[in-house]
Design a protein around this nucleic acid. Structure first.
Length: 544
RNA sequence: GUCCUCGUAGUUCAAUGGAUAGAAUAUCUCCCUCCGAAGGAGGUGGUGCAGGUUCGAUUCCUGCCGAGGACACCA
């Protein structure tokens, strides 16, 4: 376990005070004005204890403060009770340094089993759109976090290449092929009419000419397969440009045997019912609302959900933790996924579903319409081309996944302090620049064990140290609740703290031991920032 | 119609039931001869409405208003 300040206090309180009532300990940084007055960390333990002890919160707080002070005097420079009953903890500087020194000793990570993380899984019937693209950075960072925790992570992509929708796509493709041949054809009302599929029709014509026109039975399926495979290839290539490489791609069309087997198993458990000529999945526990749904249509074909059952049954078998990343349009699917977990005896708490909200694009100060018919439609690829991988990922990660967000393309493209990605990378580049100037580059590194850490004592320096020590806690919280915005916010605050240090503190040319200590801090900042950026999948160039 | 999600500074977003609701941006006032000025310090400004739960509510509950979404033998 990495030492961290918050759990350190939490542990002391548990040990010394004990409480059957839950209490909190939280970091008070990021409040420059009040931070000083509220300590480094604070707890509400006295407030919650007051109720069960039937005493005044302040009195409880003062008692606790005295007790902790007696036993842990060297750790804290100050513990105070604050109205209405908070406890504010101020870490002693020397002790902070000690924790910092301890943190350099790396400990082996626990082995937590296998985690499957599925994300993007874009529909292959059209180019990836912005909403799907948001799934990329989110799912990828969830995977990074789980890997950081000690899971063996499998990054997965589901390729929906079967079902009625694909039939419609096939008909549409054939239609556009006929048009490309100069033939008469009428597109079905629910057919696809995007520019991309028209291009596909032309491509088919280019390849085959009119030769296959009379043989739809033979060729319709073949060209559709090729088109879907091409779309998958494009999507995976696009993902790669987002910095995402999948370990496993599962195609729905390959699942037929497994679907049969999974359904047979459900049938054995009495969870399938024949109704109106179709076969329904009818879970027994319907606490989560209406979960009944068709798996085999009356014409004998499977619906998408049947493949999903097979796919999840398989994931439940090979993974200890299963994460599905979905757009909010698929929220209605969640109870069904939960029902599948129940049906196969997979613990609900090990099935995590991360939902992301709508993405609105803003360009030239205007909201870009997402209507495909209008020329303003922007695909994920265009967005990525415009702003680049780092800004793309950072902006997608900046907000709580579930919330709807506005992606400001102009800001993401800007090479100025207004752009948070630039601000962060710039701070990192400055740190690199200082180290380079001082000759610490490449193999020559600062030896943290030989640093006279205690001579660092300005506020800017101590703030950086405290943030370095607070990061592990932020990371583990995020690995729990998947509130990914915490990472980008932390990185931004951290960059800001470094910039403040940079502005106020001179490094090179100071007395030798002080220079070395400050260089060490710069190096520590740089490494810590690199760790965060790596988790987010954002690059940390040494020069901008 | 049923269900879900969301309403926070002008704007984009934060805030495990906690203290004076934080940043960024915009705007206003200052500072910047210094390892990278792609900076720094400060001011103005906000919880949709009405109740309830409690020591304490942006957070939990109810109703209303407003926005988006889900409710297919679609995926």
């Amino acid at each position: 376990m990495e030492r961290n300040l918050r759990t350190y206090i939490e542990d002391i309180l548990h040990r010394e005070i004990g409480s059957d009532v839950p209490f909190s300990v939280e970091r008070q940084e990021g409040r420059p004005a009040q931070g000083e007055a509220r300590g480094d960390y604070s707890s509400n333990i006295a407030l919650v204890r007051a109720k069960v002890e039937k005493r005044l919160p302040m009195a409880v707080a003062e008692d606790i403060a005295i007790r902790i002070k007696e036993k842990h005097l060297p750790v804290f420079s100050k513990i105070e009770a604050a109205s209405p009953g908070f406890l504010n903890f101020y870490f002693d500087k020397q002790y902070l340094i000690e924790i910092l020194r301890d943190s350099f000793a790396s400990e082996p990570k626990p082995k937590l089993g296998t985690a499957s993380v599925e994300y993007i899984s874009a529909n292959p019937t059209g180019p990836m759109h912005i909403g799907n693209a948001r799934s990329g950075p989110i799912g990828d960072v969830v995977a990074n976090l789980l890997k950081d925790r000690g899971y063996k992570v499998v990054r997965e992509y589901f390729h929906n290449d079967a079902g009625a929708q694909i039939g419609r796509f096939a008909d549409s493709l054939w239609h556009w092929y006929m048009i490309a041949c100069g033939e008469q054809s009428v597109l079905a009302e629910d057919g696809y009419q995007g520019e991309y599929i028209q291009e596909m029709g032309k491509a088919v014509h280019k390849k085959y000419g009119a030769k296959i026109l009379q043989k739809p039975d033979l060729y319709k399926e073949r060209i559709t397969k090729a088109a879907l495979a091409g779309m998958l290839k494009d999507n995976l290539a696009l993902a790669k440009r987002m910095g995402i490489v999948f370990d496993k791609v599962v195609a729905e069309s390959d699942l037929e045997v497994k679907t049969k087997r999974a359904l047979a198993l459900l049938d054995k458990k009495g969870l399938l019912t024949k109704k109106e000529g179709a076969v329904w999945f009818t879970p027994k526990d319907d606490n989560l609302g209406e979960r009944e749904s068709v798996v085999i249509k009356s014409d004998g074909t499977y619906v998408y959900f049947a493949g999903d059952i097979a796919y999840h049954a398989e994931k439940f078998k090979r993974a200890d933790l299963v994460v599905d990343e979905l757009g909010d349009g698929h929220e209605g699917h969640i109870p069904k996924l939960r029902a599948i977990a129940d049906a196969f005896g997979f613990p609900q708490e090990n099935l995590k579903i991360v939902v992301h909200g709508l993405v609105t694009l803003k360009k030239d100060g205007q909201v870009v319409s997402m209507a495909k018919r209008k020329g303003t439609f922007v695909t994920a690829e265009e967005l990525l081309d415009t702003v680049g991988k780092d800004a793309f990922r950072f902006f997608m990660l900046q907000y709580a996944p579930r919330s709807a967000m506005t992606f400001d393309m102009d800001l993401a493209r800007a090479k100025s302090k207004d752009n948070p990605v630039y601000y962060i990378q710039y701070a990192h580049a400055r740190a690199s620049s200082i180290l380079k100037k001082a000759g610490y580059q490449g193999k020559r590194k600062i030896n943290y064990k030989k640093v006279a850490w205690p001579i660092l004592e300005t506020e800017a320096e101590l703030t950086l140290i405290k943030m370095v020590l607070a990061l592990p806690d932020a990371i583990s919280q995020t690995a729990e609740d998947f509130q990914l915005q915490r990472l980008s916010r932390f990185a931004l605050d951290f960059a800001r703290a470094f910039t403040r240090f940079y502005e106020t503190t001179h490094v090179i040319g100071e007395r030798a031991d002080l220079e070395y200590a400050r260089l060490a801090l710069v190096s520590l900042f740089r490494e810590t920032m690199q760790r965060q950026c790596k988790l987010m999948g954002i690059s940390t160039p040494d020069t901008m």
